[in-house]
Design a protein around this nucleic acid. Structure first.
Length: 247
DNA sequence: CCAGACGTTGTT
DNA sequence: GTCTGG
DNA sequence: CCAGACGTTGTT
DNA sequence: GTCTGG
């Protein structure tokens, strides 16, 4: 009935709220629906009620750099939830995940289901005309991806700047900056309780570290005061419970 | 039958 | 709403 | 996923 | 430790 060439773009919440959800606030959903595993999608109750067809996702960037690149079209499923107390319908979706392709497998063992090309996108979106079994054949790992290292700025979801996608060169060593370098040198050489400037560092070396970690690594252990005694006492209690008559 | 879950990623 | 577990 | 909060009473 | 917010 519906024209398969017709497409609708609508804002949707990421994190599918099943149509049968009964609470008044969709945020009280007690399980994750950001992703949807392709291997169980047809069994999971949360993903069965919806139309099935997926929204496409595109990076809206029109900068010169990306002119010869296609949008990364990820397959998803959506549903429509109506608040039991009335109000606007909430459309929401999950992104389908698959085993990662060979190229990405060293980075992560899962990847989004990427619809590789316009034909695949059309078929996925035409959930009226394309049988489920056919559509599911589109959901597979594709090797047709390009990728590059980016800054850890991307780790904080509040950051939404070009820096999140700008390539970084992992071979470049970070020179201590004027201010930060001075602080690190002070911590290494002048701070109270520092004996060995080359004392072992915890955590990954290339990741910016919080000052508290530097203090933990470089400072001498706290003297056993009242708090220290209490800490010991608490530890002994748990150890006694955890080791039943072993030796 | 009724009660309760309904999900993914990660890590321990 | 629908499936699973008990 | 990662970062950051994690709470209550009262008053404006 | 665990949940929420982004």
């Amino acid at each position: 009935e519906a024209d398969p060439s017709e497409r609708v773009i609508a804002p949707m919440r990421w994190g599918l709220v099943p149509s049968w959800f009964k609470e008044r606030d969709p945020r009280s959903l007690q399980f994750n629906t950001t992703n949807c595993r392709s291997d169980t999608i047809l069994e999971k109750r949360s993903f069965k009620s919806g139309g099935g067809g997926g929204p496409q996702h595109g990076l809206g960037d029109r900068e010169v750099v990306w002119e010869n690149w296609r949008p990364l079209t990820m397959a998803g499923v959506f549903d429509c939830w109506e608040p039991p107390e009335g109000g606007d319908a909430l459309y929401s979706f999950s992104i389908i995940t698959v085993d990662s392709c060979h190229a990405l497998s060293d980075i992560h063992h899962r990847m989004p289901a990427i619809l590789d090309g316009e034909a695949a996108v059309s078929q996925w979106l035409d959930f009226g005309g394309v049988p489920t079994q056919e559509a599911m054949r589109l959901i597979r790992p594709t090797e047709n991806v390009a990728f590059h290292p980016v800054s850890t700025v991307v780790n904080n979801s509040r950051n939404d700047t070009p820096e999140c996608l700008a390539p970084v060169d992992l071979a470049v060593k970070k020179e201590p900056t004027a201010g930060g370098g001075a602080l690190l040198r002070w911590l290494a050489t002048k701070s109270p309780g520092t004996e060995d400037p080359a004392s072992p560092r915890r955590g990954r070396p290339d990741v910016p570290q919080g000052s508290s970690q530097f203090l933990r690594g470089g400072a001498s252990p706290p003297r056993l005061g009242g708090a220290g005694l209490l800490r010991r006492w608490l530890k002994r209690e748990t150890e006694a419970e955890d080791e039943p008559a072993a030796k």
